[in-house]
Each structure stands twice: as C-alpha cells, then as structure tokens.
Amino acid sequence: MSTVPTTPSARKTPTARRPRTPAHTPTSTPAGPRVPGGTGRRVLLVVLYLLLTGIGLLYLLPFAIQIVTSFKTDPDAAANPLSLIPNPFSLDSYRRLFGLGGTGDAVPFSTWLGNSVLVTLFITAGRVFFDSLAGYALARLDFRGRNLLFSGLLTVMSVPGVVLLIPKFLVLNQLGIFDTYAAMIVPLLVDAAGVFIMRQFFLSVPKEVEEAARIDGASIFRTFWSVVLPMAKPALITLTILSFQGSWNEFTHFLVATQSPQYQTLTTGLASFVSGSLSSGTQYPLKLTAALLATLPVAVLFFVFQRHFVRSANSGAVKE
C-alpha cells in the first residue's frame, strides 16, 4: 500500500471521537462523519448485526454439529443429523478411539496420535532453529552467493506443494528412506516461508547491538545465540505456532512419504479411515470424534495465541 499517502491515524484525532461514543472501548478507527439520517443508519446497523450473526452461525454450525455428533450413537446420528442434543448421550466413540472397549472394531487412534505428536515436535523444533539460522545469515551475514540464495528461496517458495507429490516420493524412494520416520521428518525440517519470515524480522533488528557484542569478542554463533535470538522472541513465537500448525495439519507429505499403517498420523490415518471405508458402514460419530480430537490442539493454540495467527496470515500469505 505504498501508494496510499500516510494518514493521520485515530490516535491523532481523539477529539472527534470522544463526544460521540464515550462508552466505547477504544477502537483503532476514527469516528465517522456526522451524516444526517440517524434512524436509517440504525436500521442498517441492525441489519448488519443480523447478517453477521447469521453468517457467524453458519461458520460455527459445522463445528457445533461435529461436537454434538461425537456424543451420539450411530443410529441417532443417522436419523437426526441436525439435532443439537444427543439422544441417547454416548461416550462410545471416545471409548473406542482410546481402546477402552465399546462396540465395533478398534481404530489405531493412539498410534496416529503418537506419530502426530512425535513428528510435530521434531519438525517444529527443527524449523524454529534452522529457519532462524538461515534467516539470520540471509539478513545479516555477508557471504558470497547470499543474494543468489535469497532469490532461490523466493523461487522455491512459489513452487506449489501439490506438484511435488510424485517428485518427493521419487527422491525419498531413491534415497532409500521411503516409509520411515526420517522420510516424514527430514524434508520438513526447514521451510522456505519460515526462513523468509525470520529474515524479514532480523532485517528490522538494529545492528548496533550485535556489533557491540562482536567488538567484545563474541563469536558469530555466540552473538546470534545469546544476543540476537533472545531479541527475536515475538518472531520466534509466531514461527513456532506456524510450524506447529503446519506440521500437525500436514497431509500430502506424509501421504507420499509413508505407506505402512504404523506411520500413520492423525491426518493420514483419518483420511484413510474416512475415505477408505465408505462401504463399511458409516460410523460417523466415530469419524467426527477422531476429526474433533485432531482439530483440538490447533484450536486451543488458536484461541490462546490468536494474535500470532493473525500476524502470520498477514506476513506470510505467500504460503497460502
């Protein structure tokens, strides 16, 4: 938006706001103009609220139905898909997922969960460390080939992941690590978008601090590790959350990196369970419970750290 002339923000015009809306919590937008026709605007406002609430309900309803259905029995879910009260209330799905009995076959849910936790931990740790290392070097260290690497990074960022399905399998197979944890984890240990985010952050850190540290004789790694990295906390939190969300929800890579059931994660396991068993009965409460539990960690993270999600959506939209 560099074409837009800088504008006096709300902070500079508090006088315009104060007399009109004293009870309002501070908002970042300045007050509107005084246009005649108060009743018309009030009607408009009510309509706007109704519309927003209606659409909001549409956005929430699928999740509400999902939660309610997880407590339903199979016949109840099939007969009353829309009802928001389970009748009878049943914990059968949860019991079956955690292998505590219940009717029907067990689902290897704990294997999926274990694998998801394992790969997510490794990938998140790897990304946070390696992305900041590379981001710092690209922003601050002077070395031959840096600009070339950075243009390469930008190019790589625009390669769509779906196109790499078959190619990735070919390489993993050729390297002899297909269908192992290494194949699941190693290719995701660095992500181009994360490096980009960290580089942009390090560019904004004032240089004087690290120069002082270097004059004091600290090595480059030490300067990075104990001086620069602690200052990068906000960016690191954003990167951690992004990486966690990305690896927890990752599907296509695990799909082409493994084939044995023992390596299934929540996403690949759920996908094969849901899409493969279309013929073998519906079992929707079970499927929706598994999906719900797979969503839960990211949902909790989202509600706690929403600010960081919003920031990442606005800084890394290139990631899609």
Partner: peptide
C-alpha cells in the same frame, strides 16, 4: 484447522 478434519465434517 486441518483440511482433513474439516473434509470429514
């Protein structure tokens, strides 16, 4: 949220 979970719903 996970695209797989949403698709299931």
């Amino acid at each position: 949220t996970s695209s797989i979970a949403i698709s299931t719903v």
